[in-house]
Measured scan of single mutants.
Amino acid sequence: MSIQHFRVALIPFFAAFCLPVFAHPETLVKVKDAEDQLGARVGYIELDLNSGKILESFRPEERFPMMSTFKVLLCGAVLSRVDAGQEQLGRRIHYSQNDLVEYSPVTEKHLTDGMTVRELCSAAITMSDNTAANLLLTTIGGPKELTAFLHNMGDHVTRLDRWEPELNEAIPNDERDTTMPAAMATTLRKLLTGELLTLASRQQLIDWMEADKVAGPLLRSALPAGWFIADKSGAGERGSRGIIAALGPDGKPSRIVVIYTTGSQATMDERNRQIAEIGASLIKHW
């Protein structure tokens, strides 16, 4: 067993022997301040990774656009098919120029040779490549099948209805392509620590998230040296922004954090800054 596999296998073990965790309302004060600064709703939840206990939450059962955070769930569904012998990570998928959609920095470079399922998941999570996500959605049967996968996990809230990039439209009061912070946090925890996926697939999923290259201005910008984070960000229309993450000190994750916002007129930089400040408060009061 590799060191990384050992780390993920012992996530519940280490967490069980940690000192009790206590909620700190100071972080919620910052979440509410972010709402004021952005002029928009902000949803927040913080779960203990081992027990699933909610440590703090704000608007945990209000719907927010998922945006690209759905790509972690998508690759979880792909990995479940791999575990069941219905898919192979090494299978190569070929596609054409007509398949390319807006923001496809990886797939646009491989029109000639195609990409493997493993490479597509890596591109979808680490670079948020939209064509990679659409190609992977095709392998599982489309958005409705991802929703069905989530329902089978016990998540009857999260739903995907459309493809990239239309799913980022974020129309107010439109339930399409949305989740709730509580539902997303619980589902992410199941994917990373539950028995739904094999140990190898859980490790692969967290490795992809740990290698995320496009979430630097968010929670990662607030992390002290030595902290662990595996995350996936999302951005959408109407001032929408979000991030889902597993993080913790001492090089291992111990909490799940989900943050979503929508309806702001603020710039992307300002949305990023507010999420980073929430992260800084979380870490300060850990």
Rank of each mutant, 00 (worst) to 15 (best):
P25G: 07
E26A: 07
L28R: 07
L28T: 09
V29N: 11
V31N: 04
V31C: 03
K32L: 13
D33A: 02
E35Q: 12
Q37C: 02
G39R: 04
R41G: 07
Y44I: 10
I45V: 05
I45W: 11
D48N: 02
N50I: 03
E56S: 10
E61L: 04
R63D: 09
R63L: 13
F64S: 01
F64A: 01
P65N: 10
S68H: 00
F70L: 09
K71T: 00
K71Q: 00
L73V: 09
L73R: 00
V78W: 09
V78I: 15
L79A: 12
S80C: 10
A84H: 12
Q86T: 14
Q86G: 08
Q86F: 15
Q86S: 13
Q88I: 03
L89T: 14
G90I: 05
R91W: 15
R92S: 07
I93A: 15
S96C: 10
D99S: 04
E102T: 04
Y103C: 11
Y103E: 03
S104I: 14
P105D: 11
E108N: 15
L111S: 06
L111M: 06
D113T: 06
D113N: 04
G114K: 03
M115Q: 07
V117F: 09
R118Y: 05
C121F: 01
A123K: 06
A124R: 00
M127C: 07
S128W: 00
D129C: 01
A132D: 00
A132Y: 00
A133R: 00
L136D: 00
T138V: 07
G142Y: 08
G142E: 08
P143S: 11
K144V: 03
K144F: 05
E145N: 11
E145M: 10
L146Q: 03
T147N: 03
A148L: 14
L150T: 11
H151C: 11
H151E: 05
H156M: 13
V157K: 07
V157H: 13
T158P: 01
L160C: 04
L160F: 05
D161H: 03
R162F: 04
E164N: 00
P165C: 06
P165S: 10
L167A: 09
N168G: 11
A170W: 02
I171N: 15
I171R: 15
P172Q: 08
P172N: 11
N173D: 09
R176A: 06
D177F: 00
M180R: 03
P181N: 01
P181A: 10
A185G: 04
T186Y: 12
L192Q: 03
T193D: 09
E195R: 10
E195H: 13
E195T: 14
E195N: 02
L197I: 05
L199S: 07
A200T: 06
S201R: 09
R202A: 08
Q203G: 03
Q203D: 02
Q204I: 14
L205M: 03
L205K: 00
I206D: 11
D207H: 09
M209T: 09
A211N: 03
A211F: 10
D212K: 08
V214H: 13
G216S: 10
P217W: 14
P217S: 11
L219C: 08
R220G: 11
S221G: 07
L223M: 15
G226E: 13
I229T: 10
S233Q: 04
S240L: 13
G242N: 14
I243A: 15
I244E: 01
A245E: 00
A245R: 00
L247E: 11
D250P: 02
D250C: 04
G251D: 11
K252E: 12
K252N: 14
K252D: 15
K252A: 08
P253M: 15
R255N: 05
V257R: 00
V258G: 03
T261R: 09
G263I: 06
S264D: 08
Q265G: 08
A266D: 07
T267V: 03
E270T: 11
R271Q: 09
N272E: 08
